[in-house]
């Protein structure tokens, strides 16, 4: 039961690990002023990160 459930998350982790540049850009954007975080504050940076993750997870 738990075997098939953990695998997608490992795949996601591996995909995210390939997008360090985008992740760092998004992370910096959010913590730049973390007392004023609101919805979609960093939507653009996140979409870039997400696109990279989607591409990376399709490669394999």
């Amino acid at each position: 039961m738990s075997q098939p459930r953990t695998r997608p998350i490992q795949k996601l982790a591996a995909a995210v690990a390939k997008c360090n540049t985008e992740a760092a850009a998004y992370g910096r954007c959010v913590i730049e002023d973390y007392n004023d975080v609101h919805r979609d504050k960093c939507a653009k940076a996140f979409m870039a990160l997400k696109n990279c993750v989607v591409v990376a997870s399709k490669k394999k």
């Binding site: 985008e22 760092a24 998004y26 992370g27 990160l49 997400k50």
Partner: peptide, 14 residues
Amino acid sequence: RDVLVAAQAIYREL
């Protein structure tokens, strides 16, 4: 998933 990916990026940066 979106939140996880976002949290991962923020965790590393912070």
